[in-house]
Amino acid sequence: MLERTFERALFACRWLLAPFYAALAIGLVVLLVKLLQELGHFILHAWESNESQTILGVLTLVDLSFTASLLIIVMFSGYENFVSKFDHTDHKDWPEWMGTIDFTGLKLKLMSSIVAISAIQLLKSFMDVKAYSDRELYWLVGIHMVFVVSGILMALTDRIAAGHHDK
């Protein structure tokens, strides 16, 4: 009896994650505000910008889009994996990936998104290379490589673990 009550209470604690996902939704709204600010700045300065500045503006928009997509993946997959399943019967435009990403897939998508965001930041700094010292560029490349190597190691670890479970 005591064990069953404890297990039910522990299982109900998964709902404590729901406010975290709501906070990420608020973060998505903040990113939208930032996107609109950047878009306004990009459009207002379009005529006087050179090619590099235009590319930097576009990369900033891409970077914000990747970050927003990352939030969506974490919110939906995390909620479905740890809190509760969505009822998508009334949604004809329900994305195929929703409901199919397990925790391993979520980790890999998250890491892939972080690597992509890091790559965009690195590309932005290379587009404006004169604004950075050699030391800053080395750090940016080093940090990006840490993300890349971490992603590869995470994928290999998951592959090894999956192969171990198949036996």
Rank of each mutant, 00 (worst) to 15 (best):
V148T: 05
E48K: 06
Y79Q: 00
G99N: 02
E51G: 08
G142E: 07
D63P: 01
M145K: 05
M127T: 11
L10T: 03
A119H: 03
V33L: 15
H41F: 11
V74K: 00
Y138F: 15
L44Q: 10
S118E: 12
F11W: 11
L153D: 06
L31D: 06
H45E: 11
M98A: 04
K109H: 07
Q37T: 06
G105I: 02
R135D: 11
L35D: 03
A12C: 11
L36Y: 07
K167Y: 12
F76R: 00
H165S: 13
K34T: 03
P19A: 09
L61F: 07
L110T: 08
S133N: 05
G57R: 00
R4Y: 15
F126K: 00
F6K: 05
G27M: 00
S150I: 04
D63E: 13
K107V: 09
I101D: 03
A68C: 06
A161D: 10
W94C: 06
C13N: 12
S125L: 06
W139Y: 13
E136G: 04
A46G: 04
F86R: 02
F103T: 08
E136C: 06
V146S: 08
S133V: 05
Q121E: 13
L35K: 01
T89W: 08
D102L: 02
S118M: 13
A162P: 00
F82P: 01
K85L: 14
W15C: 09
R14W: 08
I120V: 15
M98Y: 08
L61D: 07
A161M: 11
H45S: 11
W15F: 14
E3Y: 12
I43N: 04
H144D: 09
I114M: 15
D93Q: 13
L61H: 10
L71F: 12
V148G: 05
E7V: 07
W139V: 14
H88R: 09
W139F: 14
M145C: 07
L2G: 09
F6L: 12
W139A: 10
V141Y: 14
L39T: 08
F82H: 07
R8A: 14
E80Y: 02
Q53S: 12
